[in-house]
């Protein structure tokens, strides 16, 4: 178990290092996030948002949608790059459990996406004029961490599933979107509630904690299911 996690950290470190050396990929992700923010500003002019009375409510949702779409750039090459350069075979015959390869890739995806978030969240907040860290900043940060992990878990698996497909570019979103949207809908709900400040009870019986538990359950289900079947994705 411990050696598996050690190997996972090694794989994540290797990927982060190679990403830092390449530089252009992370920059293109940041620029894409900005462009997506711009596109949303056309769809939701600030006057309209003010009329609706919810910069915070809309902005919080926007951030997740932007992160979700930027994930396409970040997560798609996670395994495709390995399979194209032929290093996937090396990973599959390495004397480490298959799940540690998956966990390593999830950690890498999480770090990559966190970098994008650190850049994009302040920018979107300034552009749309709201703050999502309202009254419970720690809870918002916790949601950001869990949500990013969830997206990374789904994204890495989607990237692994794309490998045998004929048309990789079109298939990746088809695998990533439906599996990630179930987490995304929970994330947006939680962040919106926190950003607008009505933290405790939204409606009878519906509390943030219940949504949070659902999100955690989704994350745990995704990671355990994916890690459980991952050895089959490496074996051929």
């Amino acid at each position: 178990m411990a050696s598996g996690f050690h190997a996972a950290l090694k794989i994540a470190k290797k990927d982060i290092l190679s990403q830092v050396r390449k530089k252009f990929e992370i920059f293109s992700m940041l620029l894409f996030a900005l462009i997506a923010g711009l596109a949303f500003s056309f769809a939701l002019p600030s006057a309209l948002v003010e009329d609706l009375g919810g910069e915070a409510a809309i902005g919080a949702a926007l951030i997740w949608v932007i992160v979700f779409f930027t994930g396409m750039f970040g997560f798609a090459p996670i395994f495709l790059a390995e399979s194209e350069s032929g290093t996937l075979r090396g990973l599959s015959v390495a004397p480490i459990p298959a799940w540690s390869v998956y966990i390593g890739k999830v950690i890498y995806g999480f770090v990559l996406m966190s970098l994008v978030e650190i850049f994009i969240i302040p920018v979107i907040q300034v552009l749309f004029g709201f703050t999502m860290f309202g009254e419970e900043p720690l809870l918002v940060v916790a949601t950001l961490i869990i949500g990013t992990l969830d997206l990374a878990a789904v994204g890495s698996m989607a990237s692994a599933l794309t490998m045998p497909s004929e048309s990789k570019a079109t298939i990746f979103p088809l695998v990533y979107f439906p599996t990630a949207t179930s987490g995304l809908i929970l994330l947006i709900e939680i962040t919106r509630v926190m950003a607008t400040g009505t933290v405790v009870v939204i409606a009878a019986g519906l509390t943030v904690s219940l949504l949070f538990v659902a999100l955690l359950a989704h994350l745990v289900a995704m990671i355990t299911l994916s890690a459980g079947v991952f050895s089959y994705a490496l074996s051929p």
């Binding site: 698996m157 692994a160 045998p164 439906p178 599996t179 179930s182 299911l225 994705a233």
Partner: peptide, 11 residues
């Protein structure tokens, strides 16, 4: 791979 997807789509 279809089976793997079949497992992770269940949530």
């Amino acid at each position: 791979f279809g089976s793997i997807f079949g497992v992770i789509a269940f949530p």
